[in-house]
């Protein structure tokens, strides 16, 4: 915050430091990719060696997973609409689209948690063996990231009128946009590798 105040006088400098900050956040996203890569590797390794353990196939409801995926996709799109309205300086629409993104993301998390409870009730419990644990760790870590993103969206809705949609607000929206989009990309691989491959 201090660095920002010092640089605020010189707009040119300000844009440059902002670009460096966004690059730093991009690097964080890249390290998060490596976290997910480890979890995916664990899941794939453990998933093929289960002996006599319950498989995911019998407990899956693919229709629910499809609806979940569409919720997350739509949430990503409405967030982009929010960013477009930030550039047009339209506060009400910006907050509106952010709120729609929040609702869609919250529906995703709600469906995922419901599914987890449903799986646990049917005997696909996380403490059974390594295979089930790796499933819950991978999908759960993604869900946890989405929950943090939801909290962040709420914070942005509150911050927007206070920051008056200035450059700081734009930079923070860029962070959140990268984060939200990244989670959507990870989800493509979760539903393909975990759910669809598990159901074939």
């Amino acid at each position: 915050m201090h660095a920002e105040a010092a640089m605020a006088n010189e707009h040119h400098h300000h844009v440059n430091t902002d670009a460096t900050d966004v690059f730093g956040f991009w690097l964080y996203i890249m390290t998060d990719c490596i976290l997910f890569a480890c979890l995916f590797a664990t899941f794939i390794v453990l998933n093929t060696t289960g002996m006599g353990a319950p498989t995911l196939k019998g407990h899956l409801n693919l229709h629910d997973i499809l609806i979940e995926s569409l919720f997350l996709l739509a949430s990503n799109f409405t967030f982009c609409l929010a960013v477009l309205n930030l550039n047009k300086k339209n506060l009400l629409r910006l907050q509106g689209w952010l709120f729609v993104s929040f609702l869609l993301g919250a529906s995703f998390v709600y469906m995922e948690v419901t599914e987890f409870f449903h799986l646990a009730k049917e005997g696909f419990r996380w403490d059974l063996n390594g295979q089930v644990s790796s499933f819950f760790t991978l999908v759960g870590t993604h869900g946890f990231h989405v929950s943090i993103g939801l909290l962040w969206i709420l914070l942005m809705i509150v911050q927007m009128p206070i920051l008056k949609m200035n450059d700081v607000a734009k930079r923070r929206m860029t962070y959140l946009g990268l984060f939200w989009n990244f989670l959507d990309i990870v989800w493509i691989f979760v539903f393909t590798i975990v759910y669809l491959t598990g159901a074939i």
Binding site: H11, A19, N76, F77, C80, L84, N87, K170, R171
Partner: peptide, 21 residues
Amino acid sequence: HESQPDFGTGQKKLSVYTFGF
């Protein structure tokens, strides 16, 4: 570029987002 810093993330266009969606 002055009014909309893009941070290397490209210019925001509704048509591109809609196509992607």
